[in-house]
Amino acid sequence: MIRAGAPWELIRWFGGMLIYCRTMAVFLLAWYLAAEAVPNKLLLPSPLAVAQALRESWLDGELTANAGISLLRLLVSVAAAAVLAIPIGLAMGRSRMISDLLEWPVELLRPIAGIAWIPLALFIFGIGQRLPIFIMFYTAFFPLLLGTAAGAQSVDRRLIAAARTMGLSRGTIMRRVVVPAALPSVLVSLRLAVAASWTAVVAAELVGAPSGLGYAIEYYRSMLATPTVMAFIVVIGLLGFLTDRALRWLGDALAPWARTEGRQ
């Protein structure tokens, strides 16, 4: 019998890492072979060249500076979207009237990709911080709004009934029952919003900002430095992965009951 315990946990973790490394190795090998097969190095740089470029931009600080500015923009825009979307979403989820009122504008605006606003936003905001922040805000807003509304709407009616029989006021029920009950959905939609914002960051910075990961990609493209372009793409993937991990951890910390419930 294998007993659960620290050594066993360690072995399992190590095993998981091994599988992960193997998958990565296969992927890198395939990439390497493909790069060797393509005669023009400009079209597909080899992983070694990308690693080299990654190292260089890390050493001269360019990578950290651009990644930092993109990450900061992302945090600002998602935070702004959350501050606005979560209260409106809660109101939509709990009030038929508000939901009816907002349904049309939301459903009309939601299918429009954030980047579709770039030309117009260029006129309004010009090139700078505000344009990418606006685009990312727009992209993060709708998943958060609809996720929160769905979460608030599907709160177990019996829980609200129980709180009412304990004499809680409407406001207290909203804060003490609806909000915690909707929290797991809000946290999931936050992850979706962040993931969507990462996809928007490049497009927004490609055109509208003099800094950031998207700007760096565009800059090195014009220099025909494809290994560096790839290096920044890798960084975006990595940051997206890390922010999602961080949000998952945050979700588990804020809603421990939902974690065990969902994965049993």
Binding site: D156, R158, L159, A161, A162, V177, P180, A181, L183, A255, W257, A258, E261
Partner: peptide, 8 residues
């Protein structure tokens, strides 16, 4: 009857 406990 179904307790209606707060899961959080």
């Amino acid at each position: 009857q179904d307790y209606a406990l707060f899961p959080w």
